[in-house]
Computed example of a mutant assay.
Amino acid sequence: MMQQPENKRLVVGITGASGSIYGIRLIETLLDLEYTVHLVISNAGWRVLKEEMDWDVTNREDVLREQFGHRAGTLVYHPVSDIGASIASGSYLAEGMIIMPCSMGTLSSISNGSSDNLMSRAADVMMKEGRTLILVPRETPLHAIHLENMLKLSRLGVRMIPAMPAFYYKPQTMDDLIMFLVGKVLDSLRIPHQLFKRWGEPDERG
């Protein structure tokens, strides 16, 4: 059986940083664009989904099926402890990986090459294979270690898109602010979208 072209496969990670809704909206958007999304959620990420999204995480695969099963693309869930998953190998073709939101703990693990779970291992694979890795840090304030880790990764080609929404396009709802960040991630992946009004352009949102 032929593998699906890698330009329709992306890895998405959700960590224990506040702002899990960012990752949820990203997954929904990618699935609606008919991508195959390989999803990794840290244990702390599941805790935040319970607290912030009121998800019943007792049966993790059931809740993911309930949330995303009706969308056009394919969701493939990998437990964070499954170091033997397909996305842990560079021979498995994927266009890139986005960790949204990215905790400072996960960022530190990636920065220091500590591939002790599937999240950090998959990120390490993206870096060693020269594929796109996007981190969406969500923390404030930031101290010097946070900034140094970001700088180290940025110098290695990792793209930093902090969870810092803009206001020039006059967002009307919280979802407008969330989708702005999702749109910035898609821009970095060169995926066309109409999720927010661009500066100097008419509002194309439906």
Rank of each mutant, 00 (worst) to 15 (best):
V57P: 07
N59F: 11
R60S: 01
R60L: 00
E61Q: 13
D62L: 13
L64D: 02
Q67A: 14
F68D: 06
F68T: 09
H70Q: 14
H70P: 08
A72K: 14
A72I: 10
G73I: 09
G73L: 08
T74R: 13
P79G: 02
S81Y: 12
S81L: 11
S81V: 11
S81N: 13
D82A: 12
I83V: 14
G84E: 09
A85C: 13
S86H: 11
S89F: 04
S89M: 06
G90F: 08
Y92G: 05
L93M: 12
L93N: 11
A94H: 14
E95T: 10
G96L: 00
M97N: 02
M97T: 02
M97R: 00
I98Q: 01
I98K: 03
I99Y: 01
I99W: 01
M100Q: 09
P101Y: 01
P101H: 01
P101S: 07
C102R: 03
S103E: 01
M104F: 05
G105S: 14
G105M: 04
G105T: 06
T106G: 01
L107S: 01
S108L: 03
S108H: 07
S109D: 11
S109N: 12
S109H: 08
S111A: 15
N112M: 12
G113F: 11
S114C: 13
S115V: 05
S115N: 10
D116R: 11
L118W: 00
S120A: 14
A122V: 10
A123V: 09
D124P: 01
D124S: 04
M126D: 05
M127V: 13
K128G: 10
E129K: 09
R131L: 03
T132W: 05
L133S: 06
L133M: 07
I134P: 01
L135W: 00
P137L: 09
R138F: 06
R138I: 05
P141E: 11
L142F: 14
L142H: 10
I145C: 09
H146W: 09
L147M: 15
E148Q: 15
N149S: 09
M150G: 05
K152Q: 13
K152R: 15
S154Q: 15
R155V: 08
R155Y: 10
L156W: 13
G157M: 04
G157S: 12
P162A: 04
A163H: 02
A163T: 04
M164Q: 14
M164S: 15
P165T: 07
A166P: 02
A166N: 10
F167T: 10
Y169F: 14
K170N: 15
K170M: 14
P171G: 06
P171I: 06
T173Y: 08
T173C: 13
D175G: 06
L177C: 11
L177T: 04
I178D: 02
I178W: 03
I178A: 06
M179G: 10
M179F: 13
F180G: 06
F180Y: 15
F180T: 00
L181W: 02
V182K: 01
G183Y: 00
V185R: 00
L186K: 08
D187V: 05
S188H: 14
S188V: 04
L189R: 03
R190F: 05
I191V: 12
